[in-house]
Design a binder for these strands. Sequence first.
DNA 1: ATTATATCCTGATCGC
DNA 2: TGCGATCAGGATATAA
Length: 276
Amino acid sequence: MPELPEVETVVRRLRPLLVGAKLKSSKYHDAKLRTAPLEKFVGTVTAVRRSGKNILVDFNSGSSISFHLRMTGNLLWEKRSSKNGSTQVGGAILNHSDEKHLRCRLNFDRGELRFVDIRRFGTVELIREPKAPGALPIDPIEDPLDADILAKLIGSSRQQIKVWLLRQDRLVGIGNIYASEILFSAKISPFRAANSLEAPERKRLVKSTLAVLQKAIQRCGTTFSDFHDPDGASGSFQNFLKVYDREDKSCRSCRTSVARAVQAQRSTYYCPKCQD
DNA sequence: ATTATATCCTGATCGC
DNA sequence: TGCGATCAGGATATAA
């Protein structure tokens, strides 16, 4: 499930592949995917960057293509081979599942970018005008964040803090896996009302948010079921998860059984003892 | 205004 | 062996 660390990993791998590349044409295999007539869109890539969980590919015209991987999206790169027409993706043969779920292919002068998405939640759109920089939402990696800023973001929200952390209109990048991991790290109960957090708790929450996300980025993200980087490689942060998907297993800190609860139709994992 | 819920989608898994 | 039910969750539309 691509969250901020997975998207950041994709962006870092794509950047050297795409910057300077010329887009010649595109083909869309899933009508549901296309939100603009992109087939005729051409140009030279000037930058690849992350905006929240979106992957933005900027072109010299000033327009950008924005990808969102949602649940199962993958961006795979096929280097154009000058020697033969082999279908290599980062050294690995494009497998049957990728062929079956291929949603669009962007034909660049130096290779092909393929958007593969099993569940078709992913999106691709053309953005003609850059979004004016505003105060919200805050990016925990790119923007300043401390306990006071967090308090302003939370405002008077009484949402349970786990549910609040998933909101992309306040703080971008956190999804279901990292929300549980961050709260465990901060030793805060997922059921606490967001606006009930005291300053020391907000301070711990900020510190844990940065620590967990940065460590996950270092590990190239979490590969649970579908996530791979453009070369087809997996992340390794799944080996470092403390509570996510560990129901009834012992807490790595106190050996209490990890509990699972459902909040806003999503699983939350937590230690009932460590997170009072 | 905020907050809660239903919906989208497919593959894996489970119980019978 | 199959077959229906359930689960996974990011974001949005709709409801309350």
